[in-house]
Amino acid sequence: MNNKGKGLLAVLGAAAGAFALWKYKKMTPEEKQRLKNKATDTGRRIREKAGEVENTISEKYNQLKNTAQRETNQLKNKAEDIAS
């Protein structure tokens, strides 16, 4: 992307941020609290999903590691049988 495109994106981003701030300042306290609650809930759900993904990856890693170790041991045993 050329510099004009990057500059335009930067201006649009700043404008969007200014609009969001203006909109937030115009919200009622109840609307602000609903927005905060939604952000908190979304953050909590993201952390839960990240934990689930981490657990799944750890389980798969351990399964692969154990399978590789078993196969390595089987190959060593076959090599020893052939050598003897």
Rank of each mutant, 00 (worst) to 15 (best):
N2V: 07
N2Y: 00
N2P: 10
N3Y: 05
K4F: 12
G5T: 14
G5M: 09
G5A: 14
K6S: 04
K6M: 12
G7W: 14
L8K: 13
L8V: 10
L8R: 15
L9I: 09
L9Y: 00
L9Q: 09
L9A: 12
A10Y: 00
V11S: 13
V11T: 08
V11A: 15
L12F: 09
G13A: 06
A14D: 08
A14E: 03
A15Y: 03
A16M: 00
A16R: 06
A16V: 08
A16Y: 04
G17A: 03
A18M: 00
A18T: 06
A18C: 01
A20N: 07
L21W: 04
L21S: 00
K23P: 05
K23E: 14
Y24S: 00
Y24P: 01
Y24C: 04
K25L: 13
K25S: 12
K26L: 13
M27T: 00
M27V: 09
M27K: 01
P29S: 04
P29M: 07
E30G: 04
K32N: 00
K32R: 13
Q33L: 07
R34Y: 08
R34T: 03
L35V: 04
K36N: 09
K36M: 10
N37V: 07
N37C: 06
A39Y: 10
A39M: 12
T42Q: 04
R44T: 03
R45L: 07
R45I: 05
I46S: 11
I46N: 12
R47E: 11
E48G: 05
E48M: 07
K49R: 08
A50E: 12
A50K: 02
G51C: 00
G51L: 02
G51T: 06
G51P: 04
E52M: 06
V53P: 05
V53C: 10
V53N: 12
V53A: 10
V53E: 04
V53S: 00
E54I: 05
N55S: 09
N55G: 12
S58M: 13
S58G: 10
S58V: 08
E59M: 14
K60P: 01
K60I: 02
K60R: 11
Y61P: 05
Y61K: 03
Y61D: 08
N62A: 02
L64I: 00
L64P: 01
N66T: 06
N66S: 09
T67D: 14
T67Y: 15
T67C: 10
T67G: 13
A68R: 10
Q69I: 06
Q69E: 13
R70F: 01
R70H: 07
E71H: 09
E71R: 10
E71G: 01
N73C: 02
N73Y: 05
Q74M: 12
Q74P: 04
L75Q: 12
K76A: 14
K76T: 14
N77G: 01
N77M: 11
K78G: 10
E80R: 15
E80A: 15
E80Q: 15
D81N: 14
D81L: 15
I82H: 07
A83T: 07
A83I: 11
S84K: 15
S84V: 14
